[in-house]
Amino acid sequence: MRTRSFGTFSANIKHVCFLDLLQYVMELTFLRLMGGWHLLIAVSAAASALSRAGETHAKVNTSAAAHFHSFRKKFHRLYEVDSEELIRRRLYFQNATLRHLYLNSFSTEPQSARYGINQFSDLSQMEFSDVYLRAFSSRAPAFSGGSIKEFPAKFDWREKGVVGPVQNQLSCGSCWAFSVVGAVQSVYAIGGSQLEQLSVQQVVDCSFKNKGCDGGSPSVALTWLKQTKVKLVTQSDYPYKAKTGICHFFSRSHGGVSVKDFSLQDFSGQEEAMMGQLVQNGPLAVIVDAVSWQDYLGGIIQHHCTSQWSNHAVLVVGYDTTGEIPYWIVQNSWGTSWGNEGYVYVKIGSNVCGIAESVAAVFL
């Protein structure tokens, strides 16, 4: 089983109460089962943190309580007063603030990623993973083609007007479908057609070898589109419902976009070639390890984001190598209130978050 290398998370946390630690160890145990950190390290570090808990912890809790009140107002959380759910969510929120201390301890550069309170701060890491990290990867062959010799130092398909707006998958594990549809509609627009939003719900309902809101694989969805010649209809024809439904079929004469082919490649150690693929073929559907994205606010992710566990599908729409830290421009499907108005920036060159391991390009 693969193991994570985020670092000794708990060793950096100095202010933890007994109940916090119980939940904390449970979540680390969960991540261990997913191929996560060593449980022995988690337990010993938690015990060490417990011995240091004291007066400062009370101050942290007081601050967290005030922030939790503001969080509830901002994100319209209507928990009943003194309910079991309110107590549980407050505990998850306190644990999140501790994670932020650890994650931000790496943010020494002005462009570094920042972590803090967002719409996911009252979810446990288990809950977050169970709902939002539901993509499955297929083994991709290593890229063996030649690289484009000349391409710009900065490239962004959004500037060409061919990238759709950021979407919100809500409480449905449909990221895999959003990445595929995002790639298809962009490539369609690059070919000279008008950019229009295609139906994610059609892929969720009809890609029968995937599991709808319970998760799926971009490559399996693309294989289904290629083999069946199903036309993706517009979102207005087949609106998104954030739940798995019965597949709705359309006549052959109905308009839509069909996929002729796609490529699936591993660009690990060859991210420059991946940049060339992006310029040549359009936005790319990729799968990443997004466990740490639960707390992301903005900036360039460079640390504590491993390539050990593929669990979330996104759309790479551009890159920028002109600054001190080169980065990928990645469109997510968690709404515009998350990250950089719905986008995340990931450092180029070290396969950060496993962003180069499963890369799909679409051909129409």
Rank of each mutant, 00 (worst) to 15 (best):
S179W: 04
L133K: 02
F71I: 00
K74L: 12
E324N: 12
W37S: 07
I325W: 01
Q125I: 04
C305W: 10
L33H: 11
A46E: 14
W37I: 10
T322F: 10
S105W: 05
Q277S: 06
A65L: 04
G276R: 07
W293Q: 07
Y343Q: 05
S48V: 11
D130C: 06
L40Q: 08
P110N: 12
G245V: 02
V166N: 02
Y92M: 10
F18P: 00
I13E: 11
K211D: 05
G323E: 13
S83V: 02
V286K: 01
S207L: 01
K154Y: 09
K209P: 00
F75Y: 15
R90A: 11
F30H: 13
V352C: 06
G245F: 13
V233H: 10
G256Q: 11
Q94T: 00
F250R: 12
R139D: 12
I301T: 04
D156K: 07
F93E: 01
S292R: 13
Q302T: 15
F250A: 05
P218M: 14
V352G: 02
Q194F: 06
V233A: 06
T62G: 02
N311M: 11
V259N: 01
D130H: 06
A189W: 06
Y296F: 12
L22Q: 13
I246E: 13
G245I: 02
V200I: 14
S186H: 09
V166T: 06
R134G: 02
G173E: 03
D122N: 05
S350I: 04
P326S: 08
V16K: 05
V230I: 13
G54S: 07
Q331L: 04
T321V: 12
P283H: 03
K14W: 15
K73E: 10
E84R: 01
W334V: 03
V317M: 09
D20V: 00
S307V: 00
A140F: 13
N118C: 09
E109K: 10
A153H: 08
I287M: 08
F120Y: 13
W293D: 03
N311A: 12
A65Y: 05
Y238H: 10
N12K: 09
E150M: 01
Q201A: 04
S144K: 07
H76K: 13
S105V: 05
G145E: 11
V131I: 15
I117D: 07
V362C: 04
Y319C: 06
H248V: 10
S358L: 11
F9D: 06
A221G: 07
Q265I: 00
I348V: 14
L86A: 02
A285I: 12
A65C: 04
D289P: 00
V16M: 15
M26N: 15
L284C: 07
T62I: 03
A64Q: 02
S5H: 09
V203Q: 04
S217L: 11
S63R: 14
N281W: 14
